[in-house]
Design a protein around this nucleic acid. Sequence first.
DNA 1: CTTTCTGTTAGAAA
DNA 2: ATTTCTAACAGAAA
Length: 300
Amino acid sequence: MPELPEVESLRLSLARYIIGSTIKCVEVRNGKLVSGKGAVRQSNKNKVAEFIENLKGKKIKKIERRAKNIIIEFTSGEILLVHLKMTGQLVFVGKKDKRNMIFGGHPIQETTDSLPHKHTYIIFTLDNGTIYYNDVRQFGYCLYYKNKQILEEEKHFENLGLEPFEEVFTLEYFIKEMQNKKSPLKKVLLDQSVVVGCGNIYCDEVAFASKVLPQRICSSLTKKELAKLYENIKLILQKAIDSGGSSVANYLLADGSRGNYSDYHQVYGKKGLPCPVCKTTLSSVQLAGRTTVFCPKCQK
DNA sequence: CTTTCTGTTAGAAA
DNA sequence: ATTTCTAACAGAAA
């Protein structure tokens, strides 16, 4: 899934169902998803048993988000950190209605009747329903932390830049940081070091809306261009959240519905199609290892 | 059939 | 210090 708008949309939709709920039991079908972070993870029996035991009986107090991480906090102060990476899903199915409720007016296109399925790796049974953690590629994880302080000590978030919607993310900060960077715009937005939230989709959309080529070296960007980028990062991410995110491939909201923002994509995934503004054929280039689509005429 | 591509990012390698 | 590459994995697309 999931770039910031998808994670935020999931957070909001999940919160409607599970704030105040208590975890009755947890089933882990693939231990490596709860056994620690990092590329090479191994299922560890003790860790799995601890994970399950630690979460049993815990009441959900709130759900927060940091960059693309979901942070579920219990009344006890304990933490469940969820990262969906590429294909993770958290789908809630209520106890009363086997069928889903509708979230935020988005039409339900995905049924949850078939859950759990072969890519369901963790099942959280709550007092009012069930959360299924599905993850086709198994890159994501759900990690338990005793409290917030221990989470911070793990320096899980140490390389992350500012949240785009927090007040400290000012135009002055953005200009100052960007002018130091000698890498292409796309790379810097993707690596989350200045501002978090843009993945491959929103990097391309933001660059297009700002009429700036993604291969431009950041330090060469004018203040005017940086101001445009700054505005569009906030604007586009917010509009995408308002649409429930972009359901590309298998991203789902907590009720199993899809986000609509993919209907508004201007360039992402549209290589070879005409530019929505000037009709020039959209080009693509590899940048920071990712396919990057842009309009060679509109973007300078 | 095979090869390439995919929303992420930690960690290794350069 | 910075940047690029690779790995984790499954499946859709070419």
